[in-house]
Write a protein that binds this DNA or RNA. Structure first.
Length: 465
RNA sequence: GGUGGGGUGGCCGAGCGGUUGAAGGUACCAGUCUUGAAAACUGGCAGACUCGUCAGGGUCUCGAGGGUUCGAAUCCCUCCCCCACCGCCA
């Protein structure tokens, strides 16, 4: 949610921001509604003020007279009734006025609020302009010493790669058929070592964040109220992506939603709170199951573990002071954590600066980290896939957009209450990350070497197959 | 699921139609006193919105929403949530 005052003062910032994000929100309509709303509020409050004043003045008198009225009869009664009517005339008039203005307000409020929620956070000025993912810019790439991006997999390793689909079948790591049997398309079952590898990655990631990076691990709800979804900025725009539990239809409670990321639970923690500046920055991580409907992705990445409805993700979140430099510093640190993890896992990756058109509503800056997945992409001359980068991480700076919606504030050293800045980044999402992990560490015979850092989490197993 | 009891400021707690945005306590902050601290005393201590160049006004908020009333924390309706016990149960 954006600052309305700022919108009034710098409408172009929001007009341009919306345009650069390739979104369509009628800023001028919002400004007009805002102006109309304020005019009504002013009139309404003036009337109320007058009403309150008079009520205090003549109220007790009316009460007294009404008391006398009960005992009165005849002329005395008529006289009292007239007196009461005279005293009530002005308050009644004001009441009608208030009611009318309230009606006006109620008439524009829903549209006003809906529109307000839709205005995106303007991109940071240094984010490159662009229409979509095709305009994202590579910042840099990294590969382990035994990998050369300019060569094919076969040239690097001396044999043709198998895709992760072939590898998981070969070693019985995933059972897609039974997953689909139970839950439908894009579902799967992790089996045996597949499950252990999945858990090993997650546990390694959590421990890394906690032990090496000072993040507090949290267990958070993945089933939340609508206000958490709105507060974190996933609603209203992402409504179609969330599974909806219609508890209200069963006659009790309220509806709930399954979260698509641990970010919701981590950021929701301190909603409606005013923290002390000494409590900041908050550094949280969690491992949580993520649910995504993948609406609109029909036919996309249907095979394998890439795009699925349910997965587990270690997520990191930072809530810091409202300071651009600090936010940027944390952004770097959070990405550094990911790079350390990817490097320790022996995965090749690149950092992609997302362009304005590829940003969501809530972020002002986003850097994706894509891991090299040898089994993806076109089939090359040698009959093997040429490989492709696939998104495994996404690091966002949200400015105060999310904290405004969540009403998450802090009292600064100078005593001023401010909305905090928020950031988030994936630490490890599995099973997606198993794709590069299996494909990069496969051997000529199809066996897969487990990176050393994971072995302790797998009972010392060094190799699958 | 059943029965009962509740939701008031950071916390505890009074109020149950009018000067109560809310007593009192406690916590917190500042000051006086003190060598320092404690105690005591004094003062401060909610948030949002809105009008105003400033000073300063105003409106709203006592779980939420609606209603009654000239006027509601107080009365009525609907909903939500919490606690206790019983039942069921991972």
């Amino acid at each position: 949610m954006i600052d309305l005052k700022d919108l009034r003062e710098n409408p172009d910032k929001y007009r341009n921001g919306t345009r650069d994000k390739c979104m369509d929100v009628d800023i001028d309509r919002l400004l007009a509604l805002d102006e109309g709303r304020r005019a009504i509020v002013t009139r309404l409050e003036t009337a109320r003020s007058e009403q309150n004043r008079i009520s205090k003045e003549v109220g007790p008198k009316i009460g007294q007279l009404k008391g006398k009225l009960k005992a009165a009869a005849g002329d005395e009664k008529d006289r009292l009734e007239m007196e009461i009517a005279a005293l009530e005339a002005r308050p009644s008039e004001l009441k009608a006025l208030v009611t009318e203005e309230e009606r006006h307000l109620a008439a524009i409020e829903p549209e006003f609020k809906a529109l307000w929620l839709q205005v995106p956070q303007p991109p940071s000025p240094d984010v490159p302009k662009g229409k979509g993912s095709e305009d994202n810019q590579e910042i840099r790439r990294w590969a382990p010493s035994n990998w050369d991006f300019t060569k094919t997999f076969a040239e690097n390793r001396g044999f043709k790669p198998r895709t992760h689909l072939e590898l998981v079948r070969m070693h019985g790591l995933v059972d897609f058929e039974r997953g689909v049997k139970m839950s439908g398309t894009r579902h799967y079952v992790l089996t045996g070592l597949g499950m252990r590898l999945h858990q090993a990655v997650l546990r390694y990631a959590v421990d890394f964040m906690a032990d090496k990076r000072g993040f507090s691990p949290m267990g958070i709800p993945v089933i939340v109220k609508e206000e958490c979804m709105v507060g974190t900025g996933f609603f209203p725009a992402g409504r179609e992506q969330a599974y909806h539990i219609e508890e209200s239809k069963r006659g009790s409670g309220h509806d709930l939603y399954l979260t698509g990321t641990g970010e919701v639970g981590l950021m929701g923690l301190h909603a409606d709170e005013i923290l002390s500046h000494e409590q900041l920055p908050l550094k949280y991580c969690t491992v949580s199951t993520c649910f995504r409907r993948e609406a609109g992705a029909a036919g996309k990445d249907t095979a394998g573990l890439y795009r699925i409805h349910q997965f587990d993700k270690v997520e990191q979140v930072v809530v810091c002071k409202a300071d651009d430099a600090e936010s940027r510093a944390w952004h770097k640190q959070m990405m550094e954590s990911v790079e350390m993890i990817l490097q320790s896992l022996g995965l090749a990756y690149r950092l992609l600066q997302c362009c304005t058109g590829d940003l969501g509503v809530k972020n002002e800056d986003m850097i994706d980290i894509e891991s090299w997945m040898p089994g993806r992409g076109e089939v090359g001359k040698d009959g093997a896939p040429t490989g492709e980068f696939g998104e495994t991480h996404s690091a966002s700076r949200l400015n105060d957009f999310q904290c405004r919606r969540l009403n998450l504030r802090y009292k600064d050293a100078d005593g001023k209450t401010r909305f905090a800045y928020a950031l988030n980044n994936t630490v490890a999402a599995s099973p997606r990350v198993l794709i590069p992990l299996l494909e990069m560490h496969q051997q000529a015979d199809g066996s897969v070497v487990i990176p050393e850092v994971l072995r302790g989490y797998m009972g010392g197993i060094a190799k699958i197959g």
